[in-house]
Amino acid sequence: MPGITGPSDYSKEPIRHNSLQINSKEPFNAEPQRSALISSYLTPADLFYKRNHGPIPIVDDIEKYSVSISGLIENPKQLFMEDIRKLPKYNVTSTLQCAGNRRTAMSKTKTVKGVGWGVSAIGNAVWGGAKLTDVLELVGIPKLTNTTKYGGKYVEFVSIDQCKEENGGPYKASITLSQATNPEADVLLAYEMNGEPLNRDHGFPLRVVVPGVIGARSVKWLEAINIIAEECQGFFVQKDYKMFPPSVNWENINWSSRRPQMDFPVQCVICSLEDTTTITPGKVSISGYAASGGGRGIERVDVSVDGGKTWMEASRFQKSDIPYTADDDGNCDKWAWVLFEVTAEIQQSTEIIAKAVDSAGNVQPEKVEDVWNLRGILNTSWHRIQVHVNDSNS
C-alpha cells in the first residue's frame, strides 16, 4: 500500500512503557499491571494491552495512505485520510478485550495454546473517527442493509499487518453487513484514541473498532474493506477464536463445526489485589473492572470475602462526563466497562471472589473447568483471590 509498509522484521518496533508485562517479544504482546487498569476510567494508550501477530507497520507518507473499498458493490472507491476526516466524527467509549484474557488461569486446569495473558488483556478508551455506516454509504450501501444487490452479506477488514498464521499474508476479519450498516452498533474507522492520534501499536493511521466484540475483529492498520458473500475465510476467523467444549482436543477438533466468536461474555476481575496476597487484619478495599459484550451493561458486581458463602454488592463507577463528545444520543458509555469497589473487614485468611451480572441477567460461570477450551479463550469464570492474613500478634 502506498504510504504504509509492513516490515519483514522487528528492527523498527516502537518504544513501549517499561512497566508492561511482556508475554511475547516477537511479535510483541504485553499487558499492564492489573493495578494500573483501575487507576483511571480510560486506559492510557501506553498502558493499553498490545496484541500483535507480526512487526508493527510503518507509515511512510500519511498523504498517500488510503483504504480501498471493493467487492460485491457497484462503485468501488479508494479513500484517503482527508476523505474519511470529512465525514462526521464520532467519539465512542468502548472496552476492547482480547479473547484470550485470563488464559493463564485457564491453563492451570489443563494446557491450552496461545499467548499467556494474565487479567489485563483489556482496556477502555474513547475512540474517535468516522462511523462505518457513513463510509459504506460512499459506495452506495445504505444504512440498515442485510445484503447488497450483488449478494454482499459480510464486510471484511484487511490489514497491512503480515502474519505467520496467514503464511505471511495480511491479518483479516469480518462482521455481518447488517452490523456494519447499523448506526446503533457504533462500528468506527478510528483515527484517534483518547483524544490523540492513534499510535503505531494501536493501528496508526486508521483502524476498525467493533464495540462489544472480541478484540480480534477490530482490525488495525486498515488497508482494505471488502464486501463479500460469506464470512472471511482467513485463519483468525475460520481456525481460531472459536469456543469449543472441554471434550474437544487437538486430535478431534473440527473447526467448521463452530461459528467465529463475536460478542464477549460478562467478565469481572479484581485488580486491587494479586492472585495471592498477604495483608494485615482490618478493612480491605476490593476493586476492579467489569464488562459485558454486545452493548449489555453491568447490572451489578457481587463480592464475597468468605469463599462464596455470603455476598455483598459493590458500588459501580462509570464516568460519562469524559472530556470528549458522545454520540448524538449521549450513549458514550454504552460499550464501556464499569469500575467497582467495596470495602470489607477481613480478620483471617480467606478466598475473595468477584462475579458480575449483566443487563440481560447473564452471570459468570462459577468454575473455570466448565468453560475450559483448547484455545484458552473466554475465561469468564468467577475471579478468585487467595488472601493470607499476617497477624503480628499471633
Results as ranks from 00 to 15, higher is better:
residue 70 S to W: 06
residue 203 G to F: 07
residue 4 I to G: 07
residue 201 D to H: 10
residue 346 I to G: 01
residue 270 I to Q: 07
residue 284 V to T: 07
residue 296 R to F: 01
residue 360 A to Q: 03
residue 163 C to K: 10
residue 76 P to R: 07
residue 292 S to N: 05
residue 303 V to T: 13
residue 257 S to W: 05
residue 388 H to I: 11
residue 388 H to V: 11
residue 229 A to L: 12
residue 344 A to C: 06
residue 18 N to Y: 04
residue 339 L to R: 14
residue 254 N to A: 07
residue 23 N to E: 08
residue 17 H to D: 14
residue 116 G to W: 05
residue 254 N to C: 05
residue 198 L to Q: 06
residue 92 V to F: 09
residue 176 T to Y: 03
residue 34 R to W: 10
residue 307 G to E: 15
residue 84 I to K: 03
residue 56 I to T: 08
residue 4 I to S: 08
residue 288 G to C: 08
residue 153 K to V: 07
residue 57 P to M: 01
residue 284 V to S: 00
residue 76 P to M: 07
residue 260 P to F: 02
residue 348 Q to M: 02
residue 330 G to T: 11
residue 390 N to F: 01
residue 121 A to M: 14
residue 92 V to P: 13
residue 64 K to P: 12
residue 43 T to R: 03
residue 134 D to Y: 09
residue 231 E to T: 10
residue 379 N to V: 04
residue 199 N to G: 06
residue 166 E to G: 11
residue 297 G to A: 14
residue 61 D to T: 12
residue 41 Y to E: 09
residue 104 T to A: 14
residue 147 T to R: 15
residue 147 T to W: 03
residue 222 L to P: 08
residue 125 A to P: 08
residue 135 V to R: 09
residue 219 V to E: 05
residue 150 Y to T: 03
residue 214 I to D: 00
residue 129 G to I: 09
residue 350 T to W: 04
residue 42 L to S: 05
residue 193 M to F: 12
residue 339 L to H: 11
residue 168 G to S: 08
residue 273 L to H: 08
residue 57 P to W: 01
residue 324 Y to W: 15
residue 170 P to L: 10
residue 145 T to N: 14
residue 21 Q to P: 01
residue 364 Q to T: 13
residue 189 L to I: 05
residue 197 P to H: 06
residue 134 D to M: 13
residue 295 G to M: 14
residue 327 D to Y: 14
residue 259 R to Y: 02
residue 208 V to Y: 05
residue 394 S to A: 04
residue 146 N to C: 09
residue 180 A to I: 03
residue 119 V to E: 13
residue 316 R to C: 14
residue 363 V to H: 07
residue 54 G to V: 02
residue 77 K to C: 00
residue 357 V to W: 01
residue 208 V to M: 09
residue 11 S to A: 03
residue 179 Q to N: 11
residue 150 Y to R: 07
residue 214 I to M: 00
residue 299 E to M: 13
residue 106 M to K: 03
residue 140 G to T: 12
residue 180 A to C: 06
residue 186 D to F: 06
residue 257 S to K: 03
residue 136 L to C: 09
residue 195 G to M: 13
residue 30 A to K: 00
residue 10 Y to H: 02
residue 42 L to F: 08
residue 317 F to L: 12
residue 54 G to R: 04
residue 390 N to L: 09
residue 10 Y to K: 00
residue 136 L to P: 12
residue 4 I to P: 04
residue 107 S to I: 01
residue 137 E to S: 12
residue 278 T to R: 13
residue 374 L to F: 10
residue 149 K to D: 10
residue 103 R to C: 05
residue 156 E to D: 11
residue 9 D to V: 01
residue 100 G to S: 04
residue 139 V to F: 13
residue 326 A to V: 04
residue 324 Y to C: 09
residue 365 P to G: 10
residue 272 S to D: 07
residue 26 E to Q: 10
residue 151 G to R: 02
